[in-house]
Design a protein around this nucleic acid. Structure first.
Length: 253
DNA sequence: ATGCCACACCTTGTGTGA
């Protein structure tokens, strides 16, 4: 079984790229972020034609998350621990015997801003929620908008204190891990420099100047099943690609 | 300090992203 996390940066603008990804890679489960459309505009027919079930939590213009799976998706919950939040950022579904949580974590715009305060509070609520879950095998994947360590940033000195790498954000990520979740990629490859996002501007992808901000956090019962985790840079290199690559984790059956 | 790029939007510029 494999589980992909993929920030598509508009599912409508990325329709051809997404369908090519599904056709080429044949993933079992795909967690999408930044749909940027309402549920009615999601490409239901295209993904269903390729054999996927879909659980969608859309929003006009911004945010929006979805889970695709070759197997049925049950027990779907949307923003389960953010009852008064109008932003579609979290969806949970059970599929293939795994509790899949798909997140589009707040960006935060600028350290110290109102949006940054919202990001920290959102992360606090995430931890509060996840900390109360039972021991069922769980993966929490998505766009975390946090590069957990300097190794996850092409220019740690230049980015010091900035959004995505600040100490506050990293502390939240570490506390989430301390609840019993492991960053699958870093667990497998402790010293590997591998990014998942590259700015559209300045040919950053061609220079491999990026950040690793898309992650799979796996719960203790699931960790022994983790075989591999790869970043699909090929899809990022194509024309009209998202600025994020798809990241896929492979589990032993 | 700004734009650099890309996306959505009751667009002809603005807000947001990372």
């Amino acid at each position: 079984m494999n589980i992909t996390t993929y920030n598509v940066n508009s599912v409508r603008a990325r329709n051809a790229a997404l369908l090519a990804f599904l056709d080429d890679r044949r993933p079992d489960v795909v967690c999408l972020q930044e749909l940027k459309c309402v549920d009615e505009e999601f490409p239901w027919k295209d993904v269903e034609a390729r054999g996927y079930h879909a659980a969608v939590f859309g929003q006009k213009t911004y945010n929006g998350v979805a889970i695709l799976s070759r197997q049925p998706i049950e027990g779907v919950e949307r923003n389960p621990h953010w009852p008064d939040d109008s932003q579609s950022r979290a969806i949970l579904g059970w599929t293939g015997g795994v509790r899949v949580i798909n997140l589009y974590v707040v960006n935060g715009q600028e350290v110290g801003s109102d949006k940054f305060a919202y990001k920290l509070d959102w992360l606090r609520r995430l931890r509060e929620w996840v900390g109360g879950l039972d021991e069922a095998p769980t993966v929490i994947c998505g766009d975390y908008n946090i590069a957990p360590a300097d190794l996850d940033c092409y220019d740690p000195k230049g980015w010091m204190g900035q959004i995505l790498v600040s100490d506050d954000e990293r502390a939240h990520f570490k506390e989430l891990c301390d609840l019993g979740y492991t960053d699958a990629f870093r667990h497998l490859y402790p010293g590997r420099k591998q990014y998942s996002w590259w700015d559209y501007r300045g040919n950053m992808f061609e220079q491999d100047k990026g950040l690793r901000i898309d992650h799979h956090l796996v719960s203790r019962p699931l960790l022994p099943r983790v075989i591999d985790c790869i970043v699909d840079t090929e899809a990022r290199a194509r024309p009209q690609a998202s600025d994020h690559a798809a990241v896929t984790m492979f589990l032993r059956d």
